Amino acid sequence: MEEEVAARGDHGKVRAVRTVCAVIDIVCWVFALVLLLHILLVVAGANMGNGFASFITSWAGGVDLGLDGLFTPADERMAVLLNEGVAALLWLAIGALLTNLISRVALPVDERRAWYRRSVRP
């Protein structure tokens, strides 16, 4: 397969598209992990005056996609769990959708990720 790509001269394009998709994946996963870490700190009752907890809280506030007040249960911990949990899932979905769309538009069929491939035997 690499020989076919090299023969077509698409190796640089394939590499660039894969790099862009990898960067998107990493950024979206980091945002989701920051939100999950903030959920863990809040649910566990961490000292929010601590420098690390304060840093994670401010970063989580910047990547929560505006979902901070989506759910308003009486318990603050449950509110953080629900709101930031949905935001983390959305970041993962956004990353998957973007990389899938970019791959479908920019890569030839034989260079795309194979999430599921069914083989039929005669």
Rank of each mutant, 00 (worst) to 15 (best):
M1P: 10
E4S: 15
E4R: 15
V5K: 05
G9C: 13
H11V: 14
H11M: 15
K13L: 11
K13Y: 05
V14G: 01
R15D: 11
A16C: 08
A16I: 10
A16V: 09
T19N: 13
T19G: 12
V20N: 05
V20R: 08
C21T: 03
C21H: 01
I24A: 13
D25K: 03
C28P: 09
V30A: 15
V30Q: 09
A32Q: 04
A32N: 06
L33D: 05
I39M: 14
L40F: 10
L40V: 09
V42R: 06
A44K: 09
M48E: 15
N50I: 03
G51H: 08
F52T: 02
S54M: 14
S54I: 06
S54G: 15
S58I: 09
S58H: 15
W59G: 01
G61F: 10
G61T: 04
G62F: 06
V63S: 07
V63C: 12
V63L: 09
D64P: 00
L65W: 04
G66S: 05
G66W: 04
L67S: 03
G69N: 14
F71R: 05
T72E: 14
P73S: 12
R77H: 12
A79W: 09
V80R: 01
L81G: 09
L82G: 01
N83C: 13
N83D: 13
A87R: 00
L90Q: 06
W91F: 13
L92G: 08
L92N: 03
A93Q: 04
A93K: 04
I94Y: 04
I94R: 03
A96K: 00
A96D: 05
L97M: 10
L97S: 03
T99F: 00
L101C: 09
I102N: 05
I102S: 05
A106V: 00
V109C: 01
D110C: 07
D110N: 12
D110Q: 11
E111P: 00
W115L: 13
Y116W: 08
R117N: 08
R117T: 11
R117D: 10
R117I: 03
R118D: 05
R118P: 00
V120Q: 11
R121G: 08
P122C: 01
